[in-house]
Design a protein around this nucleic acid. Structure first.
Length: 577
RNA sequence: GUCCCCAUAGCUCAGCGGUAGAGCAGCGGAUUCUUAAUCCGCGGGUCGCAGGUUCGAAUCCUGCUGGGGACACCA
């Protein structure tokens, strides 16, 4: 062996020499196509030992001489190989089922009488009630062992083990051997009927006596597997999860739980408001004048009217019109649309619930928010202490209350109200806070300081109250300080989740403040347009009113302990593919 | 809108100039208490798209598309 290799040495040296002619050999130690050509002509080592045979499998010659069509054509392969790993395997099984007279998408219903969770919860106490169960869901795992097999069924409520035994199977044995073992795939939707028992290892299991295919699944499912030592991740790519949310929901029971909780949050809020006698209403999404918030709107076009319309950025002005109209408490779960950037706290369409209650003020509303959240958090989480990331948030009222300027002074170590614009800009630079959008007004700079330095520091539920008048054009002047308004925000985990005022009901003041906004708008700033009809409504008399906006997505993020808003939106906005 | 990172098998990822890899899923076989079933065998890819550099590109460069993160806007 050794001497054979040695006798190839001259050939190898020849190769190196020829290669040197073709290119910069010093940078590589690999065999090139031209090397192979040399070998091809030499064929044999001077000692007589064949060379080409040994070299023939080297990569370049493979590429060099290989006929591209030498591989078997796809349709020449037997079916089982041709479509291995592809959806077509399942398509073929579907045809096979039809041949056996089994419709893969039957019309007949399959009424169930229990669920996986129900069996797991109640069977140990009430064994006699589970002699004949019917349930339906996806076939989730198969552990085939010859004449008996285990499988897992996943229904809406969770997973339960199935047991199939050839000899006790009610149908013909072929149903076990062919239909169950060969033609059913993971992900297929089936209905099963049988009795519940406990295995030797203590797992509650359905002994299946009859099953029915209800819908064939034509895709391979990414199925998660996990043990103590190791987890085989299934579907973690966020893009795929959001684009194919149905798949995400099939695979991840915890994702289903997030959306159940989101719905539970909405229901708890609705229940609370309804018990209070507030009226749930619906107001226009398509508006010819938008308002109620600072935001760029989406525009659309009405063909018959021949006019531009806006998707609402807020429903505030409509709800106040309803209070003018005589309702004392109205609320709406409002999907609002804002034409702004997308990040983990912002989606272009999002949901808030807004509530307006006549004859109340923001102090009353603060207590109302505490009572509401106490109820909602307890109902959804079963406790008032909620884990959010590294924090444990405590929703037990009362929440800390801190005035806007006092919080700012506490954080900055001095009162910033008397500083000049230049001094404020300097202060922002000093604290490494990016400058806001120009024009730089005192109030914009102060608001930037507050938003960047103060707000994120409130982790536990905290009311910040008495905001500057300039940044709150719809809130009533503070009863003691005319440069402030009666407004609060609720901050949790450093983010605003609610915003409320004693609503401005002085039509003259409101007109002046909105005209000021209109002037700012004309100067290029983001500000509210003037809604003449809204002013007119106020002129008819809005009772003293407390108003609230509560961000449902943000609240859901906190209560579900997720860090991105996309996790609490079933179908977050993504670019189309 | 700006900057940084990512895109390889159905899924999760490795490879980062020299024949495209693993685990899970899939296919064939064995298996009547398994549970990540196990054991034996097998297949699976336009390496996001388009150019460029190179004898040779999944790998290096440029552009594009999509996503993630940060910033800006905003809630």
């Amino acid at each position: 062996m050794l001497h054979e290799s040695l006798c190839h040495l001259p050939v190898i040296l020849l190769i190196l020499w020829v290669s040197g002619i073709f290119g910069d050999f010093s940078t590589r130690l690999h065999i090139l196509p031209q090397d192979i050509l040399v070998l091809y002509f030499l064929r044999k080592c001077p000692c007589g030992a064949p060379i080409l045979k040994e070299v023939a499998l080297l990569p370049p010659i493979n590429a060099y001489f290989k006929n591209n069509d030498s591989r078997p054509k796809l349709n020449e392969l037997p079916l089982c190989r041709r479509f291995a790993g592809m959806d077509e395997v399942r398509r073929a099984k579907l045809q096979e089922l039809r041949k056996l007279g089994i419709e893969p998408y039957p019309t007949e219903p399959f009424p169930t009488n229990t669920t996986a969770a129900e069996i797991l919860r109640s069977y140990p106490q009430k064994k006699s009630e589970f002699k004949s169960v019917r349930l339906a869901g996806r076939l989730w795992r198969k552990r085939l062992m010859g004449k008996a097999s285990f499988a897992v069924l996943r229904d809406e409520t969770g997973d339960i083990q199935l047991y199939f035994q050839r000899d006790t199977f009610a149908e013909k044995p072929e149903w076990y051997d062919v239909v169950f073992k060969k033609l059913l795939d993971l992900g297929d939707i089936i209905g099963v009927e049988g009795f519940v028992f406990t295995t030797k290892t203590g797992e509650i299991t359905i002994h299946v006596e009859y099953f029915r295919l209800l819908a064939k699944c034509l895709h391979n499912l990414p199925i998660e597997k996990a043990t103590e030592e190791k987890t085989y991740a299934a579907l973690t790519n966020p893009e795929l999860r959001y684009r194919m949310r149905y798949l995400d929901l099939i695979v991840h029971l915890e994702v289903r739980e997030i959306f159940r909780q989101r719905t539970a949050i909405v229901q708890a809020i609705r229940d609370y408001f309804n018990e209070k006698g507030f009226l749930e209403v619906e107001t226009p999404i398509l508006q010819s004048v938008y308002g109620g918030a600072f935001a760029r709107p989406f525009t659309t076009y009405h063909n018959a009217l021949g006019m531009e319309l806006f998707l609402r950025i807020s429903n505030e002005l409509f709800l106040k019109r309803l209070i003018v109209g005589g309702f004392t408490g109205v609320y709406e779960f409002s999907k609002d649309f804002r034409n702004e950037g997308i990040d983990r706290y912002h989606n272009p369409e999002f949901t808030q619930v807004e509530l307006y209650v006549a004859y109340q003020d923001y102090y009353w509303m603060m207590e109302e928010v505490e009572r509401l959240l106490e109820r909602v958090v307890r109902q959804v989480k079963g406790t008032l202490k909620v884990k959010y990331g590294e924090y444990e948030l405590d929703f037990t009222p009362p929440y800390r209350r801190v005035r806007y300027y006092e919080a700012l002074e506490e954080r900055m170590g001095r009162d910033v109200r008397n500083l000049s614009e230049e001094a404020l800009i300097e202060l922002l630079r000093e604290r490494e806070v990016p400058l806001p959008e120009p024009p730089y007004t005192k109030i914009n700079l102060i608001a930037q300081l507050f938003d960047k330095l103060v707000e994120p520091s409130f982790i536990q539920p905290t009311f910040v109250l008495d905001y500057p008048l300039e940044i709150s054009p719809l809130a009533k002047r503070h009863r003691q300080a005319p440069e402030l308004v009666e407004r609060f925000e609720l901050i949790v985990a450093g983010k605003e989740i609610a915003n409320a005022y004693s609503e401005l009901n002085d039509p003259l003041d409101q007109r002046a403040r909105l005209e000021r906004q209109a002037a700012l708008r004309a100067a290029g700033a983001e500000a509210m347009p003037l809604d003449e009809d809204f002013i007119r409504a106020l002129e008819y008399g809005l009772p003293p009113t407390a108003g609230l906006g509560l961000g449902i997505d943000r609240l859901a993020m906190i209560l579900c302990n997720v860090r991105s808003i996309q996790e609490v939106l079933l179908f977050p906005l993504l670019r189309p593919q």
